[in-house]
C-alpha cells in the first residue's frame, strides 16, 4: 500500500507556491540560485575506514553518506557469471522531521532503486569481472546509502555518493577457493560514471535540484541519469502530476548541460580520493 507522501507538512503553503512561481518567471529562485543551477556540492571520499569504499556528498543542505561492504557469496542462478550489485537506501530520522524510524519505507526503496537503475542500466560496472567461480562464488557489493541531512532532492547526491564510493572502493582479493589473498586488492571494474539530475516542473517552468521548500510547491519532478557520453541511462518521475510532452526536449537538454557542469567537479574529487587510497 502506498500512502500520501509525508512532506514537511502534508500540505503546501499557498503563498509560497505563488512566490516560487513568480520568481521563476523572473529567472530567480527562493534561495537566490538561477533556475538551472545545482546547489553547492562537496564530495569527500574514504570517510569510513571500515567500509571498503565510502563517500560523503553534500548538495546544499542535503547530505548523503554511502558506504560499500564487499562480501563473497553465491551468484543469482540466472546470472551465474556475474557478481552481485546490491543498493539499499535509508532515510534516517535524524535527517528530517518527516522521516520516521523503521525499515525503509517506499521512499527509501524508491531511492535505492533509482540509484541502482542509474548505475546498472548504464552497464557502468562490469559485473562479470566480479565473478570468482561461475555459478558458485562471486563478489557481492553492498552499496548502502544513508540520508543524513535532508533539504530536498536526495536523488542526485545519492547517485553521486554511490559513484564516488564505488570509484574509490578497494576490493580485497580472494582466490578461487575463497581464500583471502593477503595484501592484494582490486578496484571496482567501472566502465562509465553515470550522474543524475532532478528537474522540477511548475507549470511551464523548469528548475534543477529543488530544495525542500521548492519540492513542496512543484507540480511534479523527474530524475534523469546520464553517462559520460550523454546517453540517458535512467529516468524516473518521482512525484504526482503531469509532465507536458512539449517540455521533454528542454528537460533533456537541461539535464545534459547541467550534468556536464557537475561532472568535472565529481571527477576531480574522485581523483583526489583515489590518490589517497
Amino acid at each position: 500500500m502506498s500512502f500520501l507522501p509525508i512532506k514537511e507538512r502534508s500540505f503546501a503553503v499557498r503563498i509560497m507556491n505563488d512566490k516560487i512561481y513568480k520568481l521563476l518567471q523572473q529567472g530567480k529562485r527562493i534561495d537566490e540560485r538561477s533556475p538551472y543551477d545545482f546547489r553547492k556540492i562537496t564530495i569527500q571520499t574514504n570517510v569510513v575506514e571500515k567500509a571498503n569504499g565510502s563517500a560523503l556528498v553534500s548538495m546544499g543542505g542535503t547530505r548523503i553518506l554511502t558506504g560499500i561492504k564487499v562480501e563473497l557469496g553465491t551468484p543469482y542462478s540466472d546470472r551465474p557469471n556475474e557478481g552481485i550489485f546490491s543498493v539499499n537506501a535509508e532515510l534516517l530520522p535524524l535527517a528530517s522531521k518527516s522521516f520516521e524510524p523503521g525499515p525503509p519505507d517506499e521512499r527509501g526503496i524508491e531511492l535505492a532503486r533509482v540509484v541502482d537503475r542509474c548505475i546498472r542500466e548504464g552497464k557502468s560496472i562490469d559485473l562479470e569481472r566480479l565473478c570468482l567461480v561461475p555459478g558458485k562464488m562471486v563478489y557481492i557489493l553492498y552499496v548502502d546509502i544513508y540520508v543524513l541531512d535532508y533539504d530536498g532532492n536526495y536523488f542526485d547526491p545519492s547517485v553521486m555518493s554511490a559513484m564516488a564510493a564505488l570509484a574509490t572502493c578497494t576490493i580485497p582479493k580472494y582466490s578461487a577457493t575463497g581464500e583471502r589473498i593477503e595484501g592484494e586488492y582490486m578496484k571496482v571494474p567501472i566502465r562509465d560514471i553515470p550522474l543524475s539530475v532532478t528537474i522540477g516542473i511548475i507549470k511551464d517552468k523548469l528548475l534543477v535540484d529543488p530544495c525542500s521548500v521548492e519540492e513542496n510547491s512543484l507540480d511534479t519532478s523527474i530524475v534523469i541519469g546520464m553517462d559520460s557520453t550523454s546517453n540517458i541511462v535512467a529516468m524516473h518521475k518521482n512525484s504526482p502530476g503531469h509532465i507536458p510532452l512539449s517540455l521533454m526536449e528542454s528537460i533533456i537538454n537541461v539535464a545534459e548541460e547541467q550534468i556536464g557542469k557537475i561532472r568535472a567537479q565529481f571527477m576531480e574529487a574522485v581523483r583526489i580520493g583515489q590518490e589517497g587510497r
Binding site: V48, K50, A51, S54, L65, G67, I68, K69, E71, N88, E90, L92, P93, P101, P103, P104, Y142, D144, Y146
Partner: peptide
C-alpha cells in the same frame, strides 16, 4: 530514542533495520 548503526560501521556488514 533510536540508537542505530550504519551497515558499514562494523567489520562484518550489519544487516539493515
Amino acid at each position: 530514542c533510536r540508537y542505530h548503526m550504519t551497515s558499514f560501521s562494523t567489520d562484518e556488514r550489519k544487516t539493515l533495520g
